[in-house]
């Protein structure tokens, strides 16, 4: 019996969430995992201050190295993101990212669902440039160290997976709560409420990691193809798309998370997802030409 694409994806998402949070027992004590696996980055967004986290957050790591005294650019993290992005593109958002799964579960709460205006997708690119790339290098203390601005002022994953378990297990930290925490709690609240009404609200509007993978979506090995001979332009794929894309017009859109909802709805099997480059169409054109 064939398993539906949506079920397959959900199983992979749950497995990826489990691997990202393999030290789940640490949630009781609030102790962080301190082993050597934290040298490696998670391809998805997951705070390394989460007690259950098995690897490091790539966005946090990028800012920490850029804001350090010795280095102003992280070749290691940029290389990792470039490799992950070129191989998989935003497939990582759709299948691997733990925070993506959380948003999708929130979206299952029965409520009226709505779409965002198209311009909001550009906000995440501004956040990437300003908070992830510029501020950690430009705003430094006397020692020449910059703070990870995205983590400090915005990241709801840090608030949810880091702050909530740590504050509940370390009462002494509660004394340090202030305006900064209030700001982050408000942002988390907006993201949670937004995710109930809008599919992957944070991914669409705020995620700098999604912005990086989105830029690489156009050249990634894992991609989406439309067989124009089979396509009957019925528009079912565009209707099925939760990321508000028309796959026929922009199969490798920066917003596409490769979830495969369009492929599942296509009545003629014109949509293909994978690493392959379809040979039939190319050969046909070569013969025609």
């Amino acid at each position: 019996m064939a398993i539906r694409q949506a079920v397959k994806r959900k199983l992979i998402q749950i497995a990826a969430f489990g691997l990202s949070n393999i030290h789940v027992c640490n949630m009781k004590t609030g102790k962080l995992y301190t082993g050597k696996w934290k040298r490696f980055c998670n391809p998805g967004l997951h705070c390394y201050s989460c007690p259950a986290a098995s690897v490091s957050c790539p966005i946090g790591a990028l800012q920490v190295v850029s804001g350090s005294m010795n280095f102003k650019f992280s070749f290691y993290v940029v290389g990792f993101l470039l490799a992950a992005g070129v191989l998989f593109g935003r497939f990582i958002c759709g299948f691997i990212c733990p925070f993506g799964l959380v948003q999708e579960l929130l979206h299952k709460i029965p409520s009226p669902k709505c779409k965002l205006p198209k311009w909001v997708k550009y906000i995440k690119y501004v956040i990437l440039v300003v908070f992830v790339l510029i501020l950690p290098i430009a705003v430094t203390n006397a020692a020449g160290m910059g703070a990870p601005a995205f983590c400090k002022y915005i990241c709801p994953s840090g608030t949810l997976f880091g702050a909530v378990p740590l504050l509940s297990t370390h009462p002494e930290l509660k004394k340090m709560l202030g305006a900064l925490f209030s700001l982050k709690a408000v942002i988390l609240g907006i993201v949670i409420i937004g995710s109930v009404f809008v599919f992957r609200f944070f991914c669409k509007v705020l995620c700098p990691l999604g912005a990086i993978y989105g830029l690489l979506n156009k050249v990634s090995f894992y991609h989406l193809e439309i067989d124009k001979e089979k396509c009957i332009s019925c528009g079912k794929c565009a209707k099925a798309c939760h990321m508000d894309i028309n796959p026929v017009k922009t199969p490798n859109s920066m917003e596409c998370i490769r979830c495969g909802a369009c492929r599942e709805k296509c009545p003629t099997g014109a949509i293909q997802l994978g690493f392959h480059i379809k040979k039939k169409q190319t050969e046909q054109e070569e013969n025609d030409g």
Partner: peptide, 17 residues
């Protein structure tokens, strides 16, 4: 640098620093 940050509580990440 990454390991040092990742094995300690990141105060910025949890909204305290």
């Amino acid at each position: 640098v990454i390991l040092k940050k990742a094995v300690n509580i990141c105060f910025e990440c949890i909204g305290l620093g």
